[in-house]
Design a protein around this nucleic acid. Structure first.
Lengths: 209, 209, 209, 209
DNA sequence: GGCTAAGCGAGACGGTACGTCCCGTCTTTGC
DNA sequence: GCAAAGACGGGACGTACCGTCTCGCTTAGCC
């Protein structure tokens, strides 16, 4: 609930110590006991703050967690030009999947996606600030390839490409808990750009957990 | 919490009326107000039963909802042989996506997947009874194609195919709320079997809600 | 809920084993965990019977406990003639107080008296079957003394005597948990019959527990 | 659960409105439907408060009721000097029995005494705050008479006097529901101080209810 | 330098739902 | 027809958090 920064700002200023303590407490608690056990009271107690201070600055505990994640992980996406669709795609996927490999990030993403389903208002915020940005970036990569005439002979429709890419990513995070490794990157590059480097399958396709 | 059916069954039997009333109440409530507002007390009140009757037979309200879904929707997957990988895939996808097109089913699936993230024990159950069965079915389709030598020249590794298919499905259900239409089916058949019938794109890839 | 014993009694007869097991279980449980923790389900489980068997024969769990007490303790009062008011009183008090000295009986009496307050219907039953009988017996003793001209010069009114006697008894059982010893008997004999044998006070008058 | 009054009192203060509403609701409900039907939920609903507010300040509903009684009835005992043991005793008894004559007070006392038996921890509290204070006061009266040499020739031992007095009081409240009238006062004064004014018996000694 | 605003930790408040316990009843099988 | 078994509708329990609302205190402009 950020107020207008143009206002003359009278009175005591927001405490940066409290903000940091709250974000840290939220991350600690969610990794220790899971999002289901994450409560505003718990965060406040762990952070040594009052509950009101949390309600003053964040609409829900999921927003606290989302900001905590952003403050800890390098979430920004870069789409430098590597010369070809395959290379651009490979770079993008490698960069993106990197996040999902860290267990605490995957756990946090699971919690945020779950909450986005249960609380439509947060879902909208999450879509706008997180998943949307990534979709836009990938879309730029596809557009550049199309402009270069670099797309494979019979490509998936442009609107489906991000769904395929992020679909696999989230499906592995949410359902199979499978690895987000180079083999998967090459499978995707092969399927989408018609240029897979290696054929190293990741073995048993039914791995779970 | 099903008991051993071999036991001589003494005492009063489980009430089928109560079971049906509970499942119906759960579905009613979740479509009326969403899963976040679904409570065990609410289900019991609506169904005209005691809370204990719910706790006696289901470990969590998510399990109630999952059984309610199964009792209403034709969830079983059939994998008849249509002669070719492309045809089999097209049939499987059409059959599977059909479910996601009904709004109440999609809403319910969103809730169940969310709960599977928040409650790992339920997640395991959901994976075993729901997503796992579908993965196995699709895996059978791929195996059959491989046995026929019907796979495209440079296929995705077999373990990745289900992740691609169900990834797109769940991603549209959970994130973009995009359509699960024939265009998507053809995109997937084209990408996976190298045989897309039409090139009818679904237009704006950023549709949401 | 005893039925008419004159009836021809068709069908299976009441199980004496169950009755005894239920009474024993009730006493066991009340001495182990107190009356507050005594439940019909607990009694049935401990006794190895069904709950219905209890509900069939006793109106409340307090009635079970009362019958259990009667089956274990010699509750009948005898009022033999000892020749004088003082001697009769002394005998009656000694006989009556004997019960209150056994801890498990005192504990059970506490529970029954408490329940008699909370459940007026049981209170009526308890008064009729337990406290009333004792009052009648003591009243007979006083009447006999009056007929003999053996009452002290300025006696308490006849209706007050039982209240004094049983008042002290119950007050020590319920409130002070003080001893029901010979000193108390002599005090009462002295006060009521004008003939106390010894003046051995029981010391600190504020003993509790 | 009163906290240390020396503490600097941070945070919102206890709501006096809620406290009063809770006490009033408890008394209302207990007189309307009896203690057995008194529930914490009922008190909270009637008082318009949350249940937690009750649990925060009182350990059990019996403690709520005891405080409610204390807030409504003049429970404090005074032991002014009236010149003689008989006069002091008469004044004390008249003052004490007055409470038991009001039906709602007698009903409340029955409930509290019952609960004191079922919940030993509450029993201890009740003894310390209620019955103990009254015993101490009466003991002071007896001590004063002894110091004056005003005791009758063969008195009951000092420790037994309160048991006789409160025994009769509670026995009539709990068991016979008999009157706590002047006749009883004079009987007690006569028996204990050897100076009963009148010989007006209270008639049938077996009155019940 | 006092005045007025915030922000802060603390914690009580009215509420809602939790999952459990037990009530007293009903239904089933078996003796 | 009684008995053990056990599911049933119901109600209260005591707890955990919710989001809100005072409190006393601290920290900042602003007159």
């Amino acid at each position: 609930v950020p107020t207008d920064p143009q206002a003359p700002r009278r009175g005591r200023r927001r405490s940066e110590e409290s903000r940091a303590a709250i974000l840290a407490a939220a991350l600690d608690l969610v990794t220790e006991a899971g999002f289901a056990a994450l409560t505003v009271e718990g965060i406040a107690a762990r952070a040594g703050t009052g509950k009101q201070t949390i309600y003053r600055w964040w609409p829900t505990k999921a927003d606290v967690l989302a900001e905590a994640l952003a403050s800890r992980a390098a979430l920004d996406v870069t789409v430098a030009d590597h010369g070809s669709y395959a290379a651009d795609l490979r770079a993008f996927l490698t960069d993106t999947f990197r996040l999902g490999r860290e267990a605490w990030i995957a756990e946090t993403l699971r919690a945020l996606m779950a909450q986005a389903q249960l609380d439509p208002a947060f879902g909208e915020r999450f879509r706008a600030s997180f998943t949307g940005a990534r979709r836009d970036a990938l879309h730029a990569v596809v557009d550049r390839a199309a402009a270069r005439g670099d797309l494979p002979p019979r490509p998936a429709s442009p609107g489906t490409v991000p769904d395929l890419v992020f679909g696999v990513l989230w499906y592995r995070i949410l359902v199979t808990h499978g690895p987000l490794d180079d083999a998967l990157v090459e499978d995707l590059v092969g399927v989408l750009a018609g240029d897979g480097r290696r054929r190293s399958s990741c073995g048993d396709p039914f791995q779970r957990e």
